[in-house]
Design a protein around this nucleic acid. Structure first.
Lengths: 238, 238
DNA sequence: TCTCTCCGGTGATCCAGATCACACAGCGCT
DNA sequence: AGCGCTGTGTGATCTGGATCACCGGAGAGA
């Protein structure tokens, strides 16, 4: 099956390749079937907004493919990116469960597919299947845990260099691992990286120069090679 | 019933005065009874640690009376206070549900009582009572929501004065409300306030001077009077 | 090919807030 | 009283990173 954006569509959660990997997908057959029935799937272009900060929650989105940027913006226009979500992530869950407005804006960084589950149907399912409710609780507590790391980073890490080092290390675990160095594709602009670690475009640029000069890192086009994890860890130190 | 610290002990959740007010207390009779059976209650002195950041989760604490400071500290010794908890709050829930270590340290700021619910018993209860699991999910999503506000404050609010103004406003809602001014007891040191808004003792001190000079605020001993909410809101503006 | 726009690099300046350094006030202790 | 301790108030510096300003390269689109 092909779509306007050249993606393969997954139309059944039960046969989804990431079914086993993620909390929300890995349910009993009945609950899974039910989930499959109430979901509707759609493919979104780059730049599409799944939901916007402040909207009343309509439902949750389960990301099947693509990358999604979660961000929040102050009245003066300053933006921070709180998370880059990948396939398998559940978006908007907190808003739906707590019935608070979405606390972030979710927009597609590249074309991708997402399943939508309306709020009422989801809550009904949770009432019927205790296992699903527990699974959701676990997912929420994981979210909370991640949010907490973010608070620690923003509140405790002092310098931008520390934060950038931390970020690179967290990325490097996902990249190609070899000896003490690893490699990863960099598909964010300096501006966006600045929004993640809470600093300006210029500072990010200068930090990369500095890291390059110190041989901690190497950049060829969009690929970033981490030359020395230990050295980065020393910068983090906290 | 009297205790070493001069507190009345509440020994039954079903008759607790705050039973109706808080998510976790307000369950069906069966679930409530069960909760009452598996909990054990204790009274703690000022300074007692309910749990410490990094420990494996033993269970949750439901605070019956007193105030608890939740904080996290970096290796270099910098500390941030993430929340001041009051009666009715459930502490350690995320750690228990996700089975991650406690992400904060909880210590009593004044003598108080707390019920302890061991991890295994709680999880068992959640499996048996779907309503309880859903309740827990809601509690977690509320926690998440609060954490998010914190991220916004730390990441987006620019100046310390903005953060302090925000904090005072959030406190003033709980204090004695009159016209446009309100009054509240200040039982934190400048140092602790600094740890909440992420700045130094000296800066807090200077900010209070400044606010006093601008007639936004008045301080007599431990009571703080907010003279003009609108003016504080103008400082926040974000 | 030319132009437009976005992104990255880097220098120059400036300032808010951290840091250091005292002074002093309240309070419990012996 | 005299001592230590904890918390507060306020000056004097120092500095890291924001801000402004400009340039050059890469890609898109006509």
């Amino acid at each position: 099956m092909r779509t306007p954006y050249g993606l393969n569509i997954l139309d059944n959660c039960l046969t989804c390749p990431s079914r086993q990997e993620h909390l929300f997908c890995n349910l009993s057959v009945q609950a899974g079937q039910r989930l499959n029935d109430i979901k509707s799937t759609a493919v979104y272009p780059k730049g599409a907004m799944l939901f916007i900060e402040g909207q009343q929650p309509r439902g949750v989105f389960v990301l099947c493919s693509g990358k999604v940027k979660l961000s929040t913006t102050s009245r003066e226009g300053k933006t921070i990116i709180t998370k880059i979500s990948n396939a398998g992530d559940v978006l908007g869950l907190n808003a739906v469960v707590s019935n608070h407005p979405y606390e972030v804006t979710a927009d597609m960084m590249e074309p991708g597919q997402a399943n939508f589950i309306p709020r009422d149907s989801l809550l009904q399912l949770l009432r019927e299947f205790p296992e699903a409710a527990l699974r959701v609780a676990q997912q929420l507590s994981r979210n909370y845990y991640v949010a907490y790391q973010e608070i620690r980073t923003l509140g405790l890490a002092t310098s931008p260099s520390e934060k950038l080092a931390k970020l690179l290390l967290s990325w490097s675990t996902k990249g190609t691992q070899t000896d003490g160095s690893s490699q990863l594709r960099l598909n964010l602009t300096h501006e966006e990286i600045g929004e993640i670690i809470g600093t300006t475009r210029e500072t990010v640029s200068r930090l990369f120069s500095e890291f390059r000069k110190k041989q901690l890192v190497e950049i060829k086009g969009a690929t970033l090679v981490i030359r020395s994890r230990p050295a980065l860890e020393k910068i983090v130190q906290s």
